[in-house]
């Protein structure tokens, strides 16, 4: 059994929004990667951005400052 870790999972309205988010993350060195959206979340897009929960506080401000669009944010153990 894989060990579960806590992540902040950001959902999106569309794939376009997800890819735009990813592009900004790469530019600003925000950690994480795109994953297939976990079943716990309902969103407009099949992709979600997963950030390790312990790294999220350090990039939350950046996501706000850049006005990066996403639908919702949820803490999950994956």
């Amino acid at each position: 059994m894989r060990e579960k870790k806590k992540y902040m999972v950001l959902s999106f309205h569309s794939t376009t929004e997800a890819i735009s988010f990813e592009k900004q993350c790469i530019q600003d060195q925000i950690p994480g990667r795109l994953i297939p959206i976990p079943r716990e979340i309902t969103a407009g897009c099949g992709l979600a951005w997963r950030i390790p929960a312990d790294e999220y506080p350090s990039c939350r401000q950046m996501i706000q400052d850049r006005q990066m669009k996403y639908q919702d944010i949820t803490e999950l153990s994956l």
Binding site: K23, L34, P36
Partner: peptide
């Protein structure tokens, strides 16, 4: 969300 599909999504964007 595998490399081949993400590559296509990135190209479209």
């Amino acid at each position: 969300a595998h490399a081949a599909t993400l590559g296509a999504s990135r190209m479209l964007y």
